[in-house]
Each structure stands twice: as C-alpha cells, then as structure tokens.
Design a protein around this nucleic acid. Structure first.
Lengths: 197, 197, 197, 197
DNA sequence: GATGAATGAGCTTTCATTCAT
DNA sequence: AATGAATGAAAGCTCATTCAT
C-alpha cells in the first residue's frame, strides 16, 4: 500500500474515533489526549493530521454530512413518488441513528450546539451542504412533479431536519418506548401530510 | 422588602444573566467570573446562591421551561380549536425567539448539547416538564375532541419540539430570508396537516 | 496594611523573582511554574497579577529601566562637570552590575535578544524610555555647556549603552580578570575622550 | 564533484539558512522543521549533518565569527595607521550589517542571549575567537606602534564590540535616522579618541 | 544518504471552586 | 452577605529527536 493511502486511512480513522468521542462525551469534554489514546497514537502525531481541535471538528461535520447526503442522493435518484421517498429517507435516517448513532448525535450535540467552533469556516450551511443539498433536491423534485405543495424551502427543511433530529434526541434521552425504526411509518405519514400539495 | 424577597430577586437576576451568557457564548465558554462580573457581584457571593455551575445550569432550564410552559398553558385554557391553538403556540414560540432568543437558544445550545451536565438531576424530561406537560395537554385535548389523530405522543411531540427548534436554529444561522414571525402561517399549517384526524 | 498595598507588594515581588529567573536562565528556558514555585505561589494566582508571560516580560523591562533611569537622574541633577557625571554614571552602572547583575543582564539576555516578545507594546524605545531619557538629558546638558561635542545623539547613546553593556557581558562570561568596578576609571576616560568637545 | 565536497556544500547551506532563521525569528522560535523546509530537505537528513539544534547553533557562531575575523585580518595586514584601521573596521562592520544583517544579529540575538546553549563547548570566547583574535591583533599592533594608549585589552575590546553591536541594535530597532553607513565617521572618530595614546 | 511519521515530555494558559477576611 | 485572592488540575498545542523504510 502506498504511503499516501496509509495516510488517508489514518486520517479517516481519526475522524471516526473523534466523531464517536465528541458525540458521546461532548466536544468540550473530549480531550485530544482522549482521542489519541483511543487510537493508540501520540498526541503530537494526531496534530500531523489535523492542526487543531476545531479543524478536526469541522472536517468531521463535512464528512458526516457527505455520508448522509450520499445515502439521500440514492433515494433521490429512484423513480418513485415523493411519498415513498419520504418514507425511505426517514427510514435511512433512523437506520443510521441505530447503527451509527454518533453520526446523528454529532449534528445535535456538537454542530448545532458549539457554534463558536464552526463560525469560522462553516458559515451558512457550508459544512453541511452535502446533506442540505440533497434535501433541497428532494423537495424541488416533489414540487415540480406537483406532488408537494410549493412552500418556502426552509419551512420544509426545518420540518425534516428538526423533526428527525428531535426524534433522535428523544431516543438519546431514552424517552421512546419503542425502537426508533418503529416510528418510521408515523413520522413519514406526518411529514407527507405536512408537505403534500 | 423582606430579606427573603431580596434574595429571591437576586437569584432570579443571576438566572437571567447566566441564561444570556450561556446562550450566547456556550456553556463551557462562559465562566463563573464572567457571570459575576456582568452582575457586579463577586464570584464567592454567586456561590452563595448556586452551589455549582452545573446546578445553575439545571435551575435555568427549569426556569425557562416553566416560563414557556405557562404561556402554552394560557393557550390550552382557551376555548378554541386545536388548529387555532397550534397557530397560537407557534406564534408565541416565534415571538419568544424574537424577544428573548436566549430562552430558546438555551434549549438548543446548552440543554441539548451538554447532556453530561444534565444527566444527574434532569433524568428523562424532569427539568423540562413545565414545557412538555403543556404540549401533552394540548395534544390529549385535541385527540379527545376528535380534531387530532390519535398517535404516539412522541411522534407528535418530536414534530412540535424539533420543528420549532429547527426553525430557530436556522434563524440563528441567519439562513432565513424573512423574519421568523412570518413563517407562523406556513408552519402552523404544516403541523396541523401532520396532526389532524 | 491595605489590600491594595499588599497587592502592589506582591506584584513587585513577582517582578523581582521573574527578573532573576529570566536573566539567569533566559526567557524561554524559564517557565511560569518556575516563577510560581520560587514565589511559593500557585500558577493560577500569578496570572491574576500578569495576564501573560509576555506582559510580565514587558513590565519587567519598564520597571528595570525606571530604576536605572532614576539613579542616573540623580547624577544629572548634580552641579558637576560632564566628565564627573560620566564617571558617576559608569560607576553606578557597574555597581548595579555587581549588586543586581540580573537587572543589567535582563537588558542583554532578555530585552535585546527576544524582540518578538517586545515588538508589540515596546515599539521604538517605549519600554526603556526611563533609562534612555536620562542619558539624553545628560548628553544635551553636556553639549549645552560646551563640554561635549555636538554629535548625533545615537552615536553617543550607542557608545554608552553598547560599551557598558558589552563590559557586563564580558563579566558574565568571566572574561574579566579584575572586578568590574576596577574598570571604572579606564572606561570613564574612554567615554569622555570620545565625547568631549 | 566529489561526494565530500557536495556534503561540505550542503553543510554550509544549512548553516546559512539556519543563520538567517535564528537571527530573524530567534533561536527558540525557529524549529528544526522550519529550517528543513526552507532547505527543501527532510528533518531526518538535516540531523545527518548536525546532530542537534544546539550543535548547529555553535557551528554557526564559529562560522560567522571566522567570516568576520577574516575581513578584519585583511585590514590588519594593511600598512596603515591605527586610526585608518579603525575606520576600515567600522566601515566593514557596518557594511556587513547592511548586506548580511543576519550575521551581526546572530551575535546579538542568539549568541549573547542564549548562553545556556553555548555554555557547553563555547566556554570563554572559544567559539568567537576568529573575531576576537583579530581585534586583539589590531589593538596590540596599535599599542606597539605607540599610536594607541596601553590599556586593559577588555576595556578596548568592550568598546569596539559593544559600541558597534549597540549601533546595529539601534538599527534593528529602526531608531537610526540615517543609514548606518553614514555613522562610520562619527563612530570611528569616537573610538579613536577613546583609544589613542 | 534521504524521508517524514511518530513520539511524548513539556509548555502556557484557563477556570471551577474555596476560604480567610 | 459579600469579597476576590488563591489553588492546582487539566487543557490545547509544540517541537527536538528518532527510526523504519
């Protein structure tokens, strides 16, 4: 394996590990030594890959946003109704919340909450565009086809992002009595009812 | 004025000031000396009112949750349709986001993000019950009257809490092109469509 | 004793201790814990008096420059010839080099050498004006009285400052075969010969 | 070109580059990676030439001292008066301060200030003997010929070294109103007045 | 000889909390 | 009740040096 490839792999393993720690312990309660230790790596070497804790946090949000965005893009490319797309998006979101809860919780606990970290370099939605763009495409397609009502994009986006994030938050709080996947039908229905033409 | 009253007043002024600072700078970036300074008070004395930073944070979430809950209770007591209630709740939430943005942002930036602070003493929704209870009452009334569909409470609550919170987040990010109040109609409509029978 | 007085005393004791350590070990080799330990003080408390290591370094140069300046001022106020003033200034400088070598070495080892520390806040000669001003007065008086040749001030100042500093450097290197005080006559004579009309 | 020659050339280019960086940024603020980067060389390889940062610093002072010493030696070999020699030495010193300021500043900012680095291996004036020896020869010759007064060598040396160094320091501080070369006459005159018989 | 990833001790600075006054 | 100096553990980050390739 080439050196460049090894470096890229290590870079990604840092992202994965930091993502988990930031999500579970919080950004400020996770220290660089914490991350290095979990990786069996020295603190100094970690800084060879990411030059500051803030920069690492920003790379993680981009990475996570892209991963989520790519899954949604696959749904967007299917030839199915908006109603079915909503169901699939909700389902994949909840599946991710079950299999990789750290990815969703990173949005809630790190990105959304520590704005001072992301202010410089993630203005607007720059760092989450991978995800936002796909939601935008979904919505525009649905409006074009006449299946969804033409409304302000942010009214629709806030519904999606806020609703799904809220459910994952409740899951994290152990408030939900069922597995989150079992809410898929209810919530798809609610979202569709809210958005349909 | 009695001593007890003076103490209560000072207690509340500490809560107000800490609420503002925590919301704008973040919990970990706000220091106890910061709060004391803004209050023209010594740090030592501040500790006479709240015995730790974490306890102060917990008192604030209870306080804020109660303030919001009381406003919703007033709506709940009106003899109007669920549809109208939704509109009033959305309106009062957005009004609060405009006049006291720190109260809403505290949920997003402090409560939601620093779970380790609230884990001990705010299990479940203990510290936000002032707010949650009123949403529950609203929902039960709507279902009883037959106007709202009978669904899992958390499906409904996640919609309310997540959607409204998401919109305020977008406002904070300066993503919204209009004043948040102007979204009241759209969003009330969406929520009603999602919840109605 | 008033609290303000105690604080001022402690402030000065920090300056004295840091002065000694910076002079003997060098600025970069002296750590804040080193200083705190020698003072039987906590690191955190030291920061209550000086908000950074750089700021401490700047306060020391001002302090030292003023101490030296005041001694020279006393010479300047005497009704004696420039020749005699030179002798007295050289003598007091060398006396200080013997009794408080750290003060002179601070100029050489810290101020002169770590320009990046003093660049911000000590532009030009701002932080050493206490000393420079008195040399300027000495020189102007001597020229006015006709005893000294009228030449570029910096030609004269460089002679004084550089020559005396150079001798103290040689002393520090243990190159001098006699006590530095015994050079007073030679060097006064040389300086007078260089400056006289 | 032989391998040994190539190695010698590379060695010298390291010295030159490190000299510049140490002089402009200071010894402790210049890192080994900084030097390697400017040389388009790896840090590991740099260590093949100089086995530590301290050793590199010592080699530089010897190198610089020799360069300066050789220029003075040429003056010493001329059949001219001490007065003229002084002028030539001052002139070449100031010329070097203009064309290769890093060489002079290395004495001031690195050698003079970081004694702990040079203590081991540069005792006394070992590492600057190239320069000091020539000043000694100049002085002895002047005294032998009867043109200069017979005084303690260090009184004379301190004058030369300190005065010239002081002027270059003032130049570095941008205190001088004229080009340093224009001070040549004034300062030669002062030095001659101080040293003459 | 050449590379640069890796190490880890050590630095400056911060801040919740205490306690003598 | 009120003060704020004092504590000290812990954070983020740096960098001389090594060593497998």
């Amino acid at each position: 394996m080439k050196i460049a490839e090894k470096k890229a792999l290590k870079r990604e393993s840092i992202i994965q590990t930091a993502l988990q720690l930031f999500s579970s312990k919080g950004f400020h309660k996770t220290t660089i030594p914490d991350i290095a230790k979990k990786l069996h790596m020295s603190v100094g070497n970690l800084y060879n890959y990411f030059s500051s804790k803030d920069i690492l946090a920003k790379e993680i949000i981009k990475y996570t946003s892209n991963v989520l965005g790519e899954e949604i893009r696959e749904v967007n490319m299917l030839e199915i109704s908006a109603r079915e797309k909503i169901r699939k998006i909700v389902a994949l979101y909840f599946r991710m919340a079950e299999r990789h809860p750290e990815r969703i919780e990173y949005f809630l606990r790190v990105y959304l909450a520590n704005r001072e970290v992301f202010n410089d370099g993630c203005e607007g939605m720059t760092c989450v565009s991978g995800f936002v763009t796909e939601i935008m495409i979904f919505f525009d397609d649905g409006v074009s086809s006449g299946e969804l009502r033409d409304q302000d994009f942010f009214s629709a986006f806030g519904l999606f992002m806020g609703y799904l994030g809220g459910m994952v938050f409740l899951k994290g709080e152990e408030m939900l009595t069922k597995d989150i996947g079992q809410y898929t039908d209810d919530i798809s229905l609610n979202i569709y009812a809210a958005l349909k033409a």
